[in-house]
Amino acid sequence: MGLYDAMKDAINLAQKADNIELYRQLLDLSAQALELQAEVTRLQEENTELKKVRNLEADLEYHVDAFVTRKSDVKPIKYCAACWADKKKLVPLQDISWDNYECPLCKARAVDKSQWEERQ
């Protein structure tokens, strides 16, 4: 028997016993139980989102060049480090010129200096 069923049975008993005060208190308790259940659901959803961010954080590789990549990406994609730090959003950077990248969302710029070393 769940909480809802137990409250329903108690309310029915109070109603049959013709005890108005008990009936009101049980209705108040029932409303509080519903509010608590809604809060539990909200917290569970928040917990799920926080776990997703934590798992994603563990998959990120930070670079000196103001971008991040995911370790799990088959082909590395450069993401905006500023958007990740500020909003926890992975926004792919756009290649605007030779080794220069720009975030389409926040307009932050990054340079991939590692490619310079490969060319020399």
Rank of each mutant, 00 (worst) to 15 (best):
M1C: 13
M1R: 15
L3D: 14
Y4L: 04
Y4A: 15
Y4Q: 11
D5F: 10
A6V: 12
A6S: 15
A10C: 13
I11L: 13
L13A: 14
L13S: 10
Q15C: 04
Q15R: 15
K16E: 00
A17P: 01
A17I: 06
N19E: 05
I20L: 10
L22N: 10
Y23A: 05
Q25Y: 11
L26E: 02
L26D: 04
L27W: 05
L27V: 11
L29G: 15
L29E: 04
A31S: 12
Q32A: 15
Q32C: 09
E35L: 11
E35A: 14
E35T: 13
A38N: 09
E39T: 10
E39V: 05
E39P: 03
V40Q: 07
T41G: 03
T41C: 01
T41D: 04
E46L: 07
N47V: 09
N47E: 06
T48R: 15
L50E: 09
L50M: 14
L50S: 13
K51N: 15
K51E: 05
K51P: 03
V53C: 11
V53Q: 06
V53L: 04
R54A: 07
R54S: 14
N55V: 01
N55R: 12
E57P: 00
E57G: 00
A58V: 01
A58K: 12
E61W: 11
Y62T: 12
Y62V: 08
V64H: 12
D65A: 11
A66V: 00
F67A: 04
K71P: 01
K71Y: 10
K71W: 01
V74W: 02
P76N: 12
P76A: 12
I77H: 07
Y79Q: 05
Y79A: 01
Y79E: 01
C80I: 08
A81W: 01
A81M: 06
A82R: 12
C83G: 10
C83T: 09
K87T: 14
K87L: 02
K88F: 13
Q94S: 13
I96F: 08
I96M: 07
S97L: 01
S97E: 07
D99A: 11
N100C: 12
Y101V: 02
C103E: 04
P104K: 13
L105V: 05
L105D: 07
C106T: 06
R109M: 04
R109V: 03
R109L: 03
A110P: 03
V111E: 03
K113A: 08
Q115E: 08
W116T: 02
E118C: 08
E118N: 11
E118W: 05
R119G: 05
Q120K: 14
Q120Y: 01
